[in-house]
Amino acid sequence: MRRALLTTVAATTVVSAAGAAPALAISASPDKAPLFNGSVYAIAYRGSTVYVGGSFTSVAWGGRNYSRSRLAAFDARSGTLLSWSPAANSTVMALAVSGSSVYAGGAFTRISGVGRDNLARIDAASGSVGSFSHRVSGAPYALAVGNGRLYAGGSFTAVDGSTRRNAAAFSLSSGALDGGWRPSADDSVHALAVTSSRIYLGGAFHQVNGVSRTLRIAAVSPSGGTVDRGFLPTAPAQVNGVTTDSAGVYVATGGQGGRAIAYSGGGAMRWQRVFDGDAVAVASLGGTIYVGGHFDRACTTVNNGAHGTCTDGSVSRVKLAAITGGGALTGWAPQANGVIGVRTLVVDRNRGALGAGGDFTTIGGQNRKRYASFN
Rank of each mutant, 00 (worst) to 15 (best):
R2C: 02
R3T: 04
T7Y: 03
T7P: 00
V9H: 03
A10E: 02
A10R: 00
A11H: 04
T12A: 07
A18H: 15
A21C: 10
K32I: 07
F36I: 07
S39T: 14
V40T: 15
A42S: 13
A44M: 09
A44F: 13
S55T: 12
S58K: 15
G63C: 11
G63R: 14
R64N: 13
R68E: 09
S69Y: 13
A72F: 13
D75A: 15
S78R: 09
G79D: 10
L82R: 15
S83H: 13
S85I: 12
S85T: 14
A87K: 08
A96W: 10
V97T: 15
S100W: 06
S100R: 15
A107C: 08
S112F: 04
R116E: 08
N118E: 09
N118A: 13
A120V: 10
D123H: 10
S128V: 15
G130I: 13
H134M: 12
R135M: 09
A139D: 14
Y141G: 11
A142F: 13
A142V: 14
A144Q: 13
G146T: 01
G154N: 11
T157M: 06
V159I: 15
D160I: 14
S162R: 14
R165T: 15
R165N: 13
N166P: 12
A167T: 13
S174W: 12
A176V: 09
G180Q: 09
R182V: 07
A185T: 02
S188W: 12
V189C: 07
T195C: 04
T195Y: 04
S196R: 10
S197A: 12
G202R: 01
F205M: 03
H206P: 01
H206A: 11
Q207T: 14
P222R: 00
S223C: 02
G224A: 11
G230R: 01
F231A: 05
P233W: 12
P236N: 04
S246Y: 06
A252M: 06
T253H: 05
G258Q: 06
A262D: 00
M269F: 01
R273H: 03
V274F: 02
D276N: 11
G277K: 00
A283M: 00
L285S: 05
T288R: 02
I289E: 03
Y290T: 09
G292N: 02
G292P: 02
V302L: 10
V302M: 05
N303Y: 05
N303H: 08
G305T: 06
G308Y: 01
S314M: 07
V315K: 06
S316W: 08
K319Y: 10
A322V: 04
Q335L: 08
L345Y: 00
D348N: 15
R349S: 15
G352I: 09
G352P: 08
G357A: 00
T361R: 10
I363P: 03
G364A: 07
G365A: 10
Q366V: 10
N367H: 06
K369T: 08
K369P: 04
R370P: 00
A372Y: 01
S373W: 08
N375M: 08
